[in-house]
Design a protein around this nucleic acid. Structure first.
Lengths: 217, 217
DNA sequence: CTAAAATAAAAGTAATCACTCACTTTTTAT
DNA sequence: ATAAAAAGTGAGTGATTACTTTTATTTTAG
């Protein structure tokens, strides 16, 4: 494996497994559930095989190693989850369509909440493994950051022009906004998963906080 | 072990091991380093024994199980780290001594940064295990929350009186402030550990953000 | 229909794991 | 000084692990 670039390796890997058989889907499904429930290290390949109704050998025929199976689980998620890679969110939540920064951030939050509602399990897997895997994280973060920057730089400039954003450097703004959004999502989906949420109220609270803080004018 | 209450069990456990032998200290030291580096599940007891220069049997004589060793590592940290339990931070950063909410939050941030500078490794261990251990988390969070509330409720009322805080419910204020602080610390110490930081500038940025958001007045 | 090729299942395999146990050494108390 | 208690040791133990190899079944091709 020549590439020092893990992301490339991951993407290449994901392209290799073009056709997914029914059994492969079952395997991935079971892997997601088990990894999310007890973590990668605490899940054995035999358990995955059992849960997916497949022989252990089948699992290794398709994925070679347990590590590789993890990547096959994480990669498709990342490809959708680093959304600014895909054009979807771009067009779905286009800053130019929003007259105020509040509305834009609100839409962005709603978009990501909807996505995570559909992907809670795998989100947990990804988050946990990102904590454990330094190399993956070290490659992913700059990549993520530059993608976010590429997408949001424009948006930030747009709302600065409209006079709705403080005149802070864009990287600083980006960091403040994204860590707020991320920590909200992390608490909501990972740390307190069972809670029922009033989306409208919560989004409003977060948007108000991000734009106006807690201080009195 | 009767108690359904894990926290009680932990605290009881920590009280049992009153006198720490030199070897015990070595063991805990090595365990922290290894757990932080590669996680609990990926660290074997034989490795811990080897690194700390004791026989594996010694480790089990003192801690009984690997799990128990983890608790012995986590507990003392938590006792200091849920700082509002201990009076130290209370007196060190007493809200009534601060004329403005900004100054108070700044002091709080500096206090926690100083603490984490001394405890980076174990902070990483705790954070990772909290993600993996539902029961621990489910017991710890309400406890943490109520402690924080007990301490900060007063502070929030104080700064509300001074007209420096928005008239939001205290639990909401608390959540917004603490998730901001926590996510800043998490990014700084866990996700991007190797970064060198300009404390003064970063604290200022965070304080400004928490009090005033990113929106233009 | 049949032989070859691809896929799945089952039965291994060597390594590693957390943990035990019989025993020795050190510390403490009298 | 001595006995009891505590601390320390390291060679085992059975269970489990990721992975392999062998055997069986299904799919495909001529």
């Amino acid at each position: 494996m020549p590439p020092s670039n893990i992301l490339d390796a991951i993407i290449a890997q994901s392209k290799l497994s073009k056709k997914e058989t029914a059994k492969q889907q079952k395997i991935v499904e079971a892997a997601i559930a088990l990894f999310a429930e007890r973590g990668y290290a605490n899940t054995s390949t035999s358990e995955i095989a059992k849960k997916s109704g497949v022989a252990e050998g089948t699992l290794f025929r398709h994925y070679g190693t347990k590590e590789n199976l993890l990547l096959s689980v994480i990669v498709p998620f990342l490809k959708e989850s680093i959304p600014f890679l895909a054009k979807e969110v771009f067009t779905d939540v286009n800053p130019r369509n929003y007259k105020s920064f509040e509305l834009f951030i609100g839409a962005l939050l709603r978009n990501r909440i909807a996505f995570l509602n559909e992907n809670q399990d795998i989100f947990r897997v990804v988050l946990k493994e990102l904590l454990y895997r330094d190399e993956l994280r070290n490659e992913l973060f700059p990549h993520l950051q530059s993608q976010l920057f590429f997408f949001l730089n424009d948006a930030l400039e747009w709302f600065k022009e409209l006079g709705q954003l403080k005149d802070l450097p864009n990287p600083v703004l980006l960091r403040l906004i994204m860590t707020s959004v991320a920590s909200y999502l992390a608490v909501r989906y990972v740390l307190s998963p069972n809670r029922e949420a009033d989306d409208d109220a919560e989004v409003k609270t977060m948007v108000d906080f991000i734009t106006g803080g807690v201080g009195k004018d």
